[in-house]
């Protein structure tokens, strides 16, 4: 790498403060939390969890890009791999719940409540 090479910084990184990414990711995460707390459909709760995972990914990538550290992006890669495995098992569990209770309403799953 020549020392004379011009350093190219993406325009977004030059113009948008890192704080705005923090606020944006927090908003996505909070929307996911509200989804988990308000819905009763197990699949939509699952999708809200995916939303929260993606909010965290977004923040990791933003920090990694701003600080030029590839480790954060490797973590995101692993999060995506684990999320894929989690979705496969989770959806299998939801299909099994449907098979046993004929619905995916989590209100029906109260055996462990008390």
């Amino acid at each position: 790498m020549q020392p004379t090479q011009q350093v190219l910084i993406p325009e977004v990184i030059q113009q948008i403060p890192l704080n705005y990414y923090l606020i944006f990711s927090t908003a996505l995460f909070v929307i996911g939390i509200i989804g988990v707390l308000t819905r009763r459909n197990a699949i939509i709760i699952f999708m809200s969890i995916e939303l929260m995972l993606n909010a965290v990914n977004m923040l990791l990538i933003a920090f990694s890009s701003y600080k030029s550290d590839p480790t954060g992006q490797v973590f995101v890669f692993f999060i995506m791999a684990v999320a894929a495995a989690e979705v496969a098992v989770g959806l299998a569990i939801i299909v099994m719940i449907y098979r046993n209770t004929r619905s995916i309403d989590i209100g029906a799953l109260n055996k462990l409540k008390w």
């Binding site: 190219l8 910084i9 030059q14 890192l18 701003y66 992006q73």
Partner: peptide, 13 residues
């Protein structure tokens, strides 16, 4: 903090 303009590496990702 913010980005470091001198040590910035655009090829990180």
């Amino acid at each position: 903090g913010s980005y470091n303009a001198i040590a910035f590496d655009a090829k990180t990702g």
